[in-house]
């Protein structure tokens, strides 16, 4: 008993649980906020007057600028690596921990119990969604994309719109399904983060009294609502974006900045 108490395994347990909690906020949560903010430029880019006078050009242009900026970051691989490791760690441990619970909302249908249950469900769905999202848009597994669209970071908005709509020509049934999956997946991830942020304050002991937990709940709900708006704005923005118009704007941008023709043609390479 005494030896077991002091064994590294036990201390490890605490560290892992707290790292799991922490990793959900930093870096994953922080990244999520940045990522949603960036993506949402496809809608709120209209406010960016520097990107010209045409509304669509402002949206597509701002988004493309953001994507190019990110792609131009030094040590991008390091950032990506950190994210992947964090996501993997958070996901694997999260699933492992979630499996230790047996939801019982049928017997005890309290709102908090639904919140608990949804946190697990959103975790499972979120993992699937992130995998799909990263696989299709980052790793180029375009066989998972209806219509086989390959995302290009030089034609970020147009290729993403085609991937989500199902084809470069507009909606297909499968494309609508992808859009819906994005809607559900992103919404659940935002919920997962907001609720996780709320429970983390209990886990770490920041909020103790019921009133403090309630107050922090409002903060997290507010943050979650804001992120949800960004998320939905992004999805609506891309799901309704006209591929040809967007590609034209992007092409024009790159010709100004001397993007090689080879890269341009990459956008049309639909079936590698």
């Amino acid at each position: 008993m005494a030896t077991q108490k002091n064994s590294p395994l036990r201390q490890h347990h605490f560290l892992l649980r707290r790292l799991h909690s922490l990793s959900g906020i930093v870096p994953i949560g922080v990244f999520l906020i940045l990522h949603l903010t960036t993506n949402a430029t496809i809608l709120w880019g209209v406010l960016n007057s520097r990107a010209g006078s045409d509304m669509l050009a402002r949206r597509v242009g701002t988004f493309q600028e953001e994507v190019s900026f990110i792609n131009g970051l030094p040590a991008l691989l390091l950032i990506e690596l950190t994210l992947w490791i964090s996501l993997g760690f958070h996901s694997i441990l999260g699933v492992y921990y979630a499996f230790s619970g047996r939801p019982n909302v049928r017997e005890y249908p309290y709102p908090d119990n639904w919140r608990y249950t949804l946190q697990r469900v959103s975790g499972y769905v979120g993992i699937l969604f992130i995998f799909y999202h990263v696989a299709t848009l980052r790793w180029g597994w375009s066989f998972l994309v209806p219509g086989g669209t390959q995302w290009s970071h030089n034609f970020a908005a147009s290729t993403l719109a085609a991937a989500m709509q199902g084809s470069e020509q507009g909606y297909t049934v499968a494309g609508i399904a992808v859009s819906l999956f994005y809607f559900v997946g992103v919404s659940l991830l935002v919920y997962h983060f907001a609720n996780g942020l709320w429970t983390a304050a209990i886990t770490w002991g920041l909020t103790i009294s019921e009133q403090a937990q309630k107050r922090w709940g409002f903060v997290c709900a507010g943050l979650g609502a804001g992120m949800m708006l960004l998320a939905w704005a992004s999805i609506i923005g891309f799901a309704t974006l006209d591929y040809d118009a967007a590609a034209e704007i992007e092409g024009a941008m790159h010709s100004e900045t001397n993007i090689p023709a080879a890269a341009q043609s990459h956008a049309d390479n639909t079936n590698p």
Partner: peptide, 25 residues
């Protein structure tokens, strides 16, 4: 897991979730 059912079914209305947070701290 912060489902907080405990505090709702406690017949003595003990603030169990506050205790959990306090131990967390």
């Amino acid at each position: 897991g912060n489902a907080q059912n405990c505090v709702k079914v406690c017949p003595k209305e003990i603030p169990l979730t506050e205790s959990i947070a306090a131990v967390g701290r």
